[in-house]
Design a protein around this nucleic acid. Structure first.
Lengths: 236, 236
DNA sequence: CGGCAGTTTGACATTTTTCAACTCCTGTGG
DNA sequence: CCACAGGAGTTGAAAAATGTCAAACTGCCG
């Protein structure tokens, strides 16, 4: 049932467990357990010992960091095939983020010791791990850039929307085009704010401005960026 | 001459090349070339193809990301034993950061193809790579947290100073203590500002406030944080 | 119908940025 | 030895932007 149980595994990315060779894959299916989790279940809690690696078989998971006074930073929304806890596991440290399901999800959980042994036994697992870590790093770097380099609210929000859209359409779209990008916007203003480091109200106001200036179009839960490249130039 | 040429390799960290077994190390010495570079030399330029991996044998290197209008984000200052370009190399992508020497440095450079082959030949090299990537990721995560989670200038600056101090003293000090931490502050206000997402003037003013409130003490190029834990509580 | 979550809008206060001037220190070259 | 330029730090005052508080509005679901 794994990894063929992935919701959308048409073309596995090179950092996915899907790329394991058949012998590795057989071994992989033997370790860890898959469990169903309801929506809004906390899978990983920031500050706890990193003793398990999680793999999302289906569903989607919100990854956040939080401060003591309740402020949130939304780092990514992970989907089928994505791996959680990889970086904390490497150093046997504490989880530095919190992960909670957005939808009912199937999560495979592997004890740290088992995964380390798995990595040591199969050379290409370490390789895949390194790739997955590089991707995770790049995502976080994008976030840091956005927060530091774009000074205006419009810049930060535009950057967040563009990253989100391109992340979403990465799999099937060709490279940079100036064509409109449309995608399902399942984030509230509050969550968008915690991606861009803005307050909920500022997100609303800035979004209204983008609409007024013909840059974005919204219907129900879909959002369209009319001129992606122009958006980058105008606001970033 | 390598890695014994490291300036301070008393206790190599687990992510260092120093931990390679002797056979791997012999192979490692055969690939790549070491070169001397003067201060303020650009080793890696953001946006260029990631075709080389760099290892710092001696000296120190500033790693930054920049926006089109010249704004800078200081990500880290790497020292002997640190590896540059690892994440970009994994995906054969473009460098996403700029690296330039702060002091005259000795840099070992390994072509991408050679390093990939090296990783595939030696299992523990992939493992070390994954560890190094995890550390790099954690550093960037700290930066993103700081920029998003701390809203006040005092919070961001205090967080940057604490991270810097603890990074610096990580190797020899015991874990969290409330004892004063003293370290060499080789950063200008401007550079501190680009770590914390603040303007040069705000850094100066906030630093003056910390001094006034007895939290920090400065003499020449050394800085002392008098009550690290209290600092974290008061401002963060 | 009531309640809740999310959104929108307005007025206000706060904070930081920006601009400008001035000082201190250092290294350079006459 | 002195003058000078440049980098770094300090200080002041004004402007701009966002955060904050408050209230009304929407749509959805029990």
């Amino acid at each position: 049932m794994f990894p063929s149980s992935f919701a959308n595994d048409s073309t596995p990315a090179p950092h996915n467990v899907c790329t394991f060779s058949s012998t590795v894959l057989r071994h992989f299916n033997d370790i860890g357990v898959s469990r169903c989790r309801e929506a809004h279940a906390v899978l990983i809690r920031e500050g706890f010992a990193a003793d398990h690696l999680l793999i999302i078989c289906s569903g989607s998971v919100k990854v956040t960091a939080s401060s003591s006074d309740g402020r949130l930073l939304l780092l990514r929304v992970a989907g089928p095939g994505d791996i959680l806890g990889l970086s904390a596991l490497q150093e046997h440290a504490l989880y530095r983020v919190t992960a909670e399901t957005l939808l009912p999800s199937i999560i495979k959980s592997i004890p740290r010791a088992d995964f380390v042994r798995f990595m040591e036994t199969h050379a290409d697992v370490s390789r895949t791990t390194a790739l997955a870590l590089a991707r995770e790093y790049n995502g976080t770097l994008l976030t840091a850039r956005r927060l530091a380099l774009f000074t205006s609210a419009a810049g930060k929000l535009a950057s967040a929307l563009l990253d989100w859209a391109r992340m979403d359409e990465l799999d099937n779209s060709p490279a940079h085009t100036n064509l409109p990008i449309s995608f399902a916007m399942q984030l509230t203003h509050e969550e968008l704010g915690s991606m861009a480091g803005l307050s909920r109200e500022t997100v609303g106001r800035t979004l209204a401005r983008f609409r007024r200036e013909g840059q974005v179009h919204q219907t129900n839960d879909r959002m369209t960026l009319n001129h992606p490249d122009q958006m980058e130039i105008r606001y970033c």
